[in-house]
Amino acid sequence: MTRWLGVALLPCDDDLRSALRVQNEVRGPDGLRPALSVDGNLPHVTVFQGPFVDSLDPRQELDRISASVDLPPSVRLRFAGIVYQATGWVFLSLERPPLLEKLQQATLAILDPLLDREAFDSSKDTSAFTDSEQASYARYGYRYTGDAYAPHITLGRAEDEVAREIVRSAPDRTSVPQTWTFDRLSFYTMGEQGAHSETLALWHLDPS
């Protein structure tokens, strides 16, 4: 049986609440799906997600990932804008420092043998993807790896024109912290639109 799972950085409590506020302020009357919450779909920055074999042990693999990269007690990322991503996505975009690239590379190296490649959707329309995103999807079943890696907090998805209008109006609807702090690494179950719907294993960057 295929398991749809992901690895992500989770924001500190203050920034978790900031993400919920920003989504609520920008979503407008038509809304963005799914709604973020403190006890359901957690705001997060995906390192990698996709289909995995049933035998994967989230706790074991998260321990391997955390041991393979020298992470600081917290990861601080600069805000890069609220952006539209085809098709219909609204992202709170963040910078991509070398540390995140190393974390993703280590994660891919560890999890690659556990991917269920038979579950990749070969019929998926990738015409809106960039060349690097298409290459990423073909190799890993995930759009954002390597050159295509785009750290972000997903604010949600809507009809395409609704999403574009949300992005256009976002500066008038909300204020966004210029720096975001992440203090945990999570292995999670993917929910609606790839949401962080259930935490399977958690690793605190600061062991104290």
Rank of each mutant, 00 (worst) to 15 (best):
F91L: 13
P97T: 10
L77V: 01
A67W: 05
S74K: 05
P34E: 10
R33H: 14
D70I: 00
A86K: 08
F48V: 04
A35R: 15
D13T: 13
N24K: 15
G31Q: 01
V26L: 10
V47Y: 10
L99G: 02
V83W: 03
Q105M: 05
L92P: 02
D70H: 14
L77E: 00
D39S: 15
T87V: 09
G81C: 06
D63A: 15
Q60F: 14
V26T: 13
E101Y: 06
L42D: 03
D13W: 06
R96T: 03
S37V: 04
P43H: 10
A35I: 13
L108H: 03
S18Y: 02
D57R: 06
F48G: 03
L10F: 11
Y84A: 07
Q60M: 12
S66Y: 15
R78L: 00
R76T: 02
V75P: 04
G31N: 04
P29T: 04
A35P: 03
V22H: 06
E95P: 01
A80C: 15
V90P: 00
P11M: 09
L20R: 00
L32D: 00
P72D: 07
S93H: 13
L56Q: 11
D30T: 04
G50H: 09
H44Y: 08
G40D: 08
R17C: 02
G31L: 05
R21V: 02
G28L: 13
F52K: 02
V83M: 06
V45F: 07
P51M: 06
L103K: 02
Q49N: 14
L77I: 01
G88A: 12
Q104W: 03
R78W: 01
L108W: 02
Y84W: 07
S55P: 03
E61N: 02
L62H: 07
Y84G: 00
A109H: 01
K102I: 06
R21D: 02
K102A: 15
F48T: 01
